[in-house]
């Protein structure tokens, strides 16, 4: 058990020293995963809402597909995005591989199905409650989807947070498309993987504690904001 206490101590020391390299890594993690989550929400939430509200052929298939893609293995996503962005790949000319942008793309691909599937569940619940009222007022299905997205914004924050949690915790995709380049694409998870490789388990675990703390802090803030907003708007 000394390993755990050592790691806790190391984590505190790292935080107390506010090491510049560490904060750069934490910031990059946050930036990449936040950007990926925003993109995933912009794409995934309308898709989820349309799946909940729409009536079109193939809807059920798409629902099953998105639910299934929630479990997409990060390594597979990383590999796909790698092959797309590689110089020899179809988008190679942009030279995006091994850049934070590539990591954002990979995580957005990974997280969009999660956001879409969770959004569909939230909106489907709302839709069963609002359906008659909205149809009575003459809202088209697309309009209803937009209304429900806005009206369900507090519940949907959970979908966004789930996506963000997945993004910031995954290592497989960012390792492949980012390359874990020191100072450029090295994020929390790839640093942890690297330190584990070097056999420095206490440091790896300490970084893990910091990652968990960051994710917890963000969730706590989001939870507080949501609670406030719900009290404000009912």
């Amino acid at each position: 058990m000394t390993e755990f206490s050592d790691s806790f101590l190391t984590a505190w020391q790292l935080l107390a020293a506010s090491d510049a390299r560490l904060s750069a890594i934490v910031l990059l993690s946050l930036r990449v995963s936040l950007a990926a989550t925003v993109i995933a929400c912009v794409i995934g939430m309308p898709i989820g809402a349309l799946l909940a509200v729409g009536r079109f052929p193939g809807r059920r298939v798409l629902i099953v597909l998105f639910n299934g893609l929630m479990g997409l293995p990060p390594v597979v996503v990383g590999l796909l995005v790698y092959l797309l962005l590689s110089r020899a790949g179809p988008l190679g000319q942009f030279g995006l591989l091994f850049s934070p942008t590539a990591m954002v793309i990979a995580q957005a691909v990974l997280v969009t199905p999660i956001v879409a599937a969770l959004t569909r569940q939230v909106i489907a619940d709302e839709w069963s409650e609002y359906r008659e009222q909205l149809r009575s007022l003459g809202a088209s299905r697309a309009r209803a989807a937009a209304t429900l997205l806005w009206d369900g914004r507090f519940s949907l924050s959970t979908a966004a947070l789930a996506g963000f949690g997945r993004a910031i915790a995954e290592v497989g995709a960012v390792m492949i498309v980012g390359g874990n380049i020191d100072g450029v694409t090295r994020v929390m998870t790839t640093t942890i993987a690297l330190e584990t490789s070097k056999g420095d388990l206490p440091l790896a675990l300490a970084l893990g504690f910091i990652l968990i703390a960051v994710v917890l802090a963000i969730n706590a803030v989001a939870y507080a904001v949501r609670g406030w907003a719900e009290r404000r708007w009912g």
Partner: peptide, 26 residues
């Protein structure tokens, strides 16, 4: 036509915006 239901469905916004919403849809 318009319809009023047993349980009023209110959007998470102001009372005024709820009324405006119906008009905007028209």
């Amino acid at each position: 036509q318009a319809m009023v239901f047993q349980r009023p469905i209110m959007l998470r916004t102001t009372a005024l915006a709820n009324v405006v919403y119906g008009l905007k849809l028209k």
